[in-house]
Simulated scan of single mutants.
Amino acid sequence: MHYHNFGRTGRPVSNIGFGAWQIGGSWGSVSEEDGRAALNAALDAGINFIDTADVYGDGRSEKIIADVLSGRGGEKPFVATKAGRRLDPHTVEGYNRENLEGFIDRSLKNLKMERLDLVQLHCPPTEAFYRPEVFEALEALKAKGKIANYGVSVEKVEEALKAIEYPGVTSVQIIYNIFRQRPASLFLPEAKRKNVAVIVRVPLASGLLSGKITRDTRFDKEDHRNFNRSGEAFDVGETFAGVPFEIALDAVEEVRKHVPGGETMAAFALRWILMNEAVTVAIPGARNAEQAKGNARASDLPVIGDDVMEAMAEIYRNRIARHVHQRW
Rank of each mutant, 00 (worst) to 15 (best):
V252N: 03
L274Q: 08
F219T: 02
K194V: 04
F234K: 10
V13G: 11
R115Q: 15
S185R: 15
V303P: 00
M312T: 02
E263T: 12
E32V: 14
V157G: 00
A251R: 10
G7C: 12
V169E: 07
E136Q: 15
F245H: 08
F103R: 09
K257H: 01
T91Q: 10
A83G: 09
V154T: 10
F78M: 14
N226M: 11
E159N: 06
F268M: 03
W272H: 08
I65S: 06
L204V: 13
V303G: 00
Q120K: 14
K293V: 15
G305L: 05
R36D: 09
A45P: 00
I320C: 07
M265E: 10
V92Y: 00
R72V: 09
E33I: 12
P302G: 07
E290L: 13
E136W: 08
E254M: 13
Y316G: 04
A184L: 08
F135Q: 03
I247S: 10
G84A: 09
I178G: 01
M1A: 13
E155G: 00
M265K: 11
L87Y: 07
I23T: 11
G262R: 06
E114M: 01
I178Q: 13
E155R: 08
N228W: 02
I50C: 00
V13N: 12
Q120M: 15
R8M: 11
V281H: 02
V259K: 06
R106E: 15
V196C: 11
I47G: 00
N110Q: 14
Y3R: 12
T264D: 10
E33T: 14
D44S: 11
T91N: 01
S70F: 11
K109R: 15
D54V: 14
N99R: 12
V324W: 02
L43C: 10
W328A: 06
K212W: 01
A282P: 01
T217L: 01
G261Q: 13
A269H: 08
N195W: 06
P203K: 04
K76Q: 15
S107R: 09
M113H: 12
Y176D: 02
A278V: 04
N226Y: 15
L141F: 01
V255T: 04
R72Y: 05
I273S: 01
A311Q: 05
H4T: 10
V252A: 06
F78V: 00
L111T: 02
V68R: 06
D216T: 13
E254Y: 10
F18W: 10
H325K: 13
I315E: 05
K192N: 03
E98K: 15
P125H: 11
N228Q: 11
G242R: 04
T52N: 00
E62W: 12
D58M: 14
A163R: 07
A296H: 04
P183C: 05
G262H: 04
E310D: 13
V169N: 05
G145P: 07
N177H: 07
A37M: 05
V152M: 03
N177F: 11
D54T: 13
N40S: 13
V30Y: 02
S31Q: 05
T52R: 01
G151C: 03
G71M: 07
E158H: 06
H90V: 13
L274G: 03
E32K: 14
P77R: 11
K82Y: 14
I315S: 04
L116R: 06
